[in-house]
């Protein structure tokens, strides 16, 4: 059993999460395998962000189970969940105001002995623009630069899985395809697992191989591979088109 379970880095079973009295996620089940990139696609307000917040323990679920690396982390406090090896890139990016780019990165640093490990230099080599702005207040960066910093900061913790909440939101398409998408593909090749929440299916299709199409109340309406989605545009129209 252990071997089979260990393949699954994240398992969610029958998750129910509330905001106050509103029952946002009603029975979500999904899983993410090691070295895989998975996306959750869905319209605004279906509970994609809440799913990530439930995993992280920011909005603890009332019912259901979350396992990370086979260990039950349901209702753990966020700092403990994150230490299991999660890098989080929130939709708001959450770059600390009044704190320089370099300090933002330093705060997140969790050095690892491995040769391929992420360090300040490695982040700067992928995002040279951050190096040129290393002394600047992180919250004064442009949207794209903030997104790079948010991704770089998550990588500084040398995670095993990254949770990304709409990394392409509000960014120019050029930036998405020339900066954000390449770094995600690079992460994937270098052994990271990705869980991507998106409304922009174009990037999600290129990065992730498996997709959960989420309908209202956090219910998975359908799962599909990228090939299936590309072959059948109707699925996308049904779940994502406005």
């Amino acid at each position: 059993m252990a071997e089979h379970e260990a393949e699954k880095i994240l398992q969610i079973e029958d998750l129910h999460t509330y905001y106050g009295r509103s029952h946002i996620i009603q029975g979500l089940s999904m899983d993410v395998n090691r070295l895989e990139a998975v996306s959750i696609l869905g319209r605004n307000g279906v509970g994609k962000t809440t799913t990530l917040r439930s995993i992280l323990g920011l909005t603890p679920p009332r019912k259901g189970k979350i396992r990370i690396n086979g260990e039950d982390t349901t209702r753990w406090p966020p700092h403990k969940v994150v230490r299991k090896g999660i890098g989080y890139v929130p939709a708001e990016r959450h770059i600390f105001p009044g704190i320089s780019v370099e300090e933002n990165l330093k705060l997140a640093a969790k050095p690892s002995g491995e040769e391929e490990a992420w360090s300040m230099e490695k982040v700067y080599s992928h995002f040279p623009v951050l190096k040129t702005r290393n002394r600047q207040d992180g919250s004064t960066l442009s949207g794209g630069e903030q997104q790079m910093l948010a991704i770089g900061r998550a990588l500084m913790g040398n995670p095993v899985i990254m949770l990304l909440d709409e990394p392409s939101q509000g960014l120019a398409p050029l930036l998405v395809y020339e900066v954000i998408q390449p770094i995600l593909l690079f992460c994937l090749q270098s052994g990271l697992t990705l869980l991507l929440v998106e409304q922009n299916h174009r990037m999600a299709l290129k990065v992730a191989s498996r997709h959960y199409l989420m309908g209202i109340k956090g219910k998975v309406a359908q799962t599909a591979t990228s090939d299936q989605l590309m072959a059948d545009q109707d699925i996308i129209k049904q779940h994502l088109a406005v």
């Binding site: 994150v82 959450h94 105001p97 913790g157």
Partner: peptide, 20 residues
């Protein structure tokens, strides 16, 4: 720096593995 970061976005500080 952790104190300053936590004064603006406490949630993100805990998402970096720091016990609030």
């Amino acid at each position: 720096i952790i104190l300053r970061a936590a004064s603006s976005i406490p949630e993100m500080v805990s998402c970096m593995g720091i016990n609030m």
